[in-house]
């Protein structure tokens, strides 16, 4: 080990992890279990859980995959807020106690594993994909559906969602209503409803503006506060309400599937783009 490695591995402090344990097969009721975890520089809550699994208790269960905040599977209720375990360093929690519970508002499958199926079902219900009348064009495209930069900016933020479900865990309306569609699916619905290439408004509106749709939101803002991707579901939902209101007065933005434009033919690349480096592996065709 060289010098810098030893420094990085130095134990900064020992932190008490209090983790909710629940085993559906066992006869113990859900309870918090304590573990002492030595914290090193840069260690995330997910690293801490891995450490526990490796050194203290191999039966501890949770869901994670990418460990870099992109797969959205490690959502947990950490020190009072829904967060991604891999996205939060232990020292940044500024506490010697780390209390970890499974995401609220979802059934618990085991330990820290929430049942997200309900979320995905609601997500599917808003038909989160481009719907076009010219399905032939969609299946075998002859060009691209036109969209201006501003039209893209109107929804791109809502397309950053990783379906981690933290927003649903934070939402006070989801807490009392099982039927409320919730921030994530409503945002996904608005993302497509406001896409100028889309023609599926009729199919989507019934869900979005149903009695369990956007009007159940009363702007508690917790969803936007906890979203790890800056998606801002609260904004999407208010925009959906505004759109319906304006349409009621015949003033909403008219959106009807943008036209197909042929691929640009004569273009010259910008001069300042460097050439790709030489291939290091011989190519098959060469």
């Amino acid at each position: 080990m060289n010098k810098s490695e030893t420094r990085d591995k130095a134990i900064l402090k020992t932190v008490k992890f209090e983790v909710l344990r629940y085993n559906p097969a066992g006869n113990e009721s859900p309870h918090l279990e304590n573990y002492s975890v030595p914290v090193t520089k840069g260690m995330t809550v997910l690293d801490g859980l891995n450490w526990i699994k490796e050194h203290l208790d191999s039966t501890l269960s949770w869901r994670s995959s990418c460990r870099m905040g992109i797969c959205g599977s490690c959502g947990m209720f950490i020190n009072g807020l829904p967060r991604l375990a891999c996205n939060n360093q232990i020292v940044h929690l500024h506490s010697d106690r780390v209390v970890i519970k499974p995401l609220p508002n979802y059934d618990i499958i085991r330990d820290l594993v929430p049942d997200l199926e309900g979320l995905f079902e609601k997500h599917r219900s808003v038909k989160p994909h481009l719907i076009r009348k010219d399905t032939a064009e969609q299946d075998s495209p002859t060009g691209e559906f036109f969209q201006s930069e501003q039209e893209l900016l109107n929804y791109i933020q809502f397309a950053y969602c990783i379906k981690c479900g933290l927003c649903m865990a934070a939402c006070p309306t989801v807490a009392t209503s099982e039927e409320y569609i919730g921030p994530q699916p409503l945002t996904a619905g608005w993302r497509y409803l406001s896409d100028t290439r889309d023609e599926g408004a009729e199919q989507r509106q019934d869900v979005l503006y149903s009695s369990h749709g956007v009007y159940r939101c009363h702007f508690a803002g917790a969803c936007s506060q906890v979203c790890p991707k800056g998606v801002d579901p609260a904004l999407a939902i208010q925009m959906a309400k505004r759109d319906a209101f304006m349409k009621g007065f015949g003033r909403g933005k008219k959106r009807s599937g943008s036209s197909v434009i042929p691929p640009i033919q004569d273009w010259t690349p910008r001069g300042d783009i460097p050439d790709a480096p030489a291939k290091t592996v011989p190519q098959k065709s060469e």
Binding site: L103, Y106, D107, I109, D115
Partner: peptide, 14 residues
């Protein structure tokens, strides 16, 4: 397998 309910309910909105 049996799921444990974890919807916060009234305390969740209050």
């Amino acid at each position: 397998q049996q799921r444990l309910k974890n919807r916060l309910g009234l305390w969740g909105w209050l």
